[in-house]
Structure formats: structure tokens, C-alpha cells
């Protein structure tokens, strides 16, 4: 499952929107059957790369909603450029996705 992302040029800035599939478990909940605490499992970092360098980064805590949504505007990329997004979570799992600026 890849990160779903869209990038659009708007008023000279690139607007990037991304949706990720992730539980974003806070570590504060308990299993309703066993009563055992459910370990925290959440994305920690999302990075957007453009032409080999970092354009934007988001550090996420467990208070980001399940299936995280992220949007940001940045200047730099041009229409037709490809942006790469990737995340890593606190268990070391990763995922990535791409968007071409429209």
C-alpha cells in the first residue's frame, strides 16, 4: 500500500496533499478483551524529496489521526516535477509514494 499523494501548482506555490494508511496507535489504549496495553505504533517522520534534496518534513506524534492526512504548500518545484514522499514509523516500517506537480 503506497502513500497516495497529489501535487498542484497554485498561485506560484506547490500544494501537496497526502493520505497514508496507518493505525496511528497511541500506546494509551488497552485491548478490550485481554486488558493488555496496546503498544504505540505510529508514523514518526514523513519526508518529501524533490530533485534529491529534502523539501519538507513532518514529525508526527501519536495524536495524528488514523490514516494520516498531510497537506503543505512550498515553493521550489515546477509543473511536471516529481515529488517523492516516504514515511517511517516507530516500529521501523516504511512506505512511500510519488506525485507529479500539475
Amino acid at each position: 500500500m503506497a502513500i497516495k499523494c497529489k501535487a498542484k501548482m497554485k498561485d506560484g506555490m506547490v500544494e501537496v496533499k497526502a493520505l497514508m494508511k496507518h493505525e496511528m496507535e497511541t500506546g494509551l489504549r488497552k485491548d478490550s478483551k485481554t486488558g493488555e496495553p496496546i503498544p504505540a505504533h505510529h508514523i514518526t517522520e514523513v519526508v518529501c524529496m524533490h530533485s534529491g534534496s529534502e523539501l519538507f518534513r513532518c514529525n508526527m506524534g501519536p495524536a495524528i489521526s488514523k490514516n494520516p492526512y498531510l497537506s503543505f504548500t512550498v515553493s521550489g518545484p515546477n509543473v511536471g516535477d516529481t515529488l517523492q514522499l516516504s514515511y517511517v514509523d516507530n516500529m521501523g516500517e516504511t512506505d512511500s509514494g510519488e506525485a507529479v506537480v500539475k
Binding site: K4, K6, K17, L19, K21, N67, Y69, S71
Partner: peptide
């Protein structure tokens, strides 16, 4: 709705 969470489900 700007980027609805069901889009992941549509893809799947």
C-alpha cells in the same frame, strides 16, 4: 472531503 479518507478504500 478535500482529500477524503475513503480514497484509500477506493484504490484497494
Amino acid at each position: 472531503e478535500e482529500f477524503p479518507p475513503y480514497e484509500l478504500a477506493i484504490d484497494a
